[in-house]
Simulated scan of single mutants.
Amino acid sequence: MSGAAGIMPWPGAGAMGFADPARDLFGSFLWFDMIAGAARPRDLVPAMLTQDGASLPLWCRSRAGALVPVAGLNSPYTLVFRPGGHDPSAVARHLMGQVRGVVRLDALDPDDPAIAALERAAAAHGLAVSRFDHFSNWFMPVDGDFERWLSGRPGALRNTIRRRMRAAGALRFRCFGFGAASPGDGPEPEPVDLDQAVAQFDAVYDRSWKPAEPFAGINARIMRGLAGAGLLRAGILADDDGPIAAQYWAISGGRAYLLKLAHVEGAVARSPGTVLTALMIRSILAADTVDHLDFGRGDDRYKRDWVSRHRTMAGLLLINPRSAAGLAMLARERLGALRRARRRRGQTTGVPS
């Protein structure tokens, strides 16, 4: 299969031009390569736009031997889409010749100036651009002091953490990727090797309330990839019968990202998820140099108790108005905008629209 005009099958030119994962995990070749290999949507193939300063990982469809871009190389596990260093004008110029309908870019940081630059460049090269809200992200700055972080949490959560950690002596906190054990109430960490951490995470996830992952083996793939780069922090909470809660984090660029968590449904009375999250935060703040905690995707009610700041990540639709599919998308977008405007007028006047 050959790519047309600068779009090559993944991995293109390889890791050249991507960020160092220790500084920017989601802009690194490590991250994109994990997603390309383990989170591939049906009927799409990973590819890379690389030409004249443009660098953009993509999901493409194969049409008559050519790679047709559909979306950025994103996934449900991506917290921010930061492609390898690129020239927005070059990206837009080359996409204009490739987009047969619409290319969707998800998980964009709305405050990243490169995103606004890409919007302007796309419009200048004849693409219609539609920005939309993608998902909620809860996070907060921290200064490395667990007790200071805890003192700022809502009273109900703060009291639950302290009470449950004092009562957790019969539980074992097992971890992968930390340095020295951190002091404080609750069980001290016992090191586990990577194979144990992956197996125990999977065992807890399989017994949790959570649905099966859309991509089999994705958690093991991400955990192993992060561990190889020294970025994985995985925690297991166990009783005498085995693991009852598990989660894993990534440490990158001064940020601690909570990527996945689960607990055994039958153990909920002991609040194992709360205990483990508190133990993980305590250990991360003691062992790693981080200035933010990031609770990832979603507006789950519990997140705003653990971290205090919120932002809405953005998405872009890059639409070719000269194509039938692009014209259809523009019509749907305009109809949606009219409906939203009518609803807002109805809310303002009290008259149903």
Score class of each variant (00 low, 15 high):
171 L>I: 00
272 P>Y: 07
304 R>S: 15
180 A>Q: 15
45 V>A: 14
113 P>A: 13
9 P>L: 04
167 A>P: 02
334 R>C: 05
343 R>D: 11
202 D>K: 01
122 A>I: 06
297 R>C: 07
58 L>Q: 01
40 R>G: 06
150 L>C: 06
184 G>W: 06
67 L>T: 01
178 F>I: 13
320 N>R: 09
100 R>Q: 15
207 R>P: 05
222 I>A: 09
104 R>F: 00
11 P>C: 11
258 L>Y: 11
91 V>F: 02
220 A>M: 08
32 F>D: 03
144 G>F: 12
34 M>Q: 11
66 A>S: 12
168 A>L: 00
305 D>E: 15
95 L>C: 05
157 L>F: 06
244 I>E: 03
336 G>E: 10
22 A>W: 02
150 L>P: 05
50 T>E: 14
126 G>R: 01
212 A>D: 15
42 R>L: 09
349 T>Y: 05
188 E>T: 08
221 R>H: 08
209 W>V: 09
71 A>D: 04
298 G>R: 02
343 R>W: 11
126 G>D: 00
292 H>S: 07
268 V>K: 14
104 R>V: 08
269 A>T: 11
14 G>F: 03
305 D>W: 00
151 S>Q: 14
109 D>I: 04
45 V>R: 10
270 R>G: 12
324 A>D: 10
48 M>E: 05
198 V>T: 06
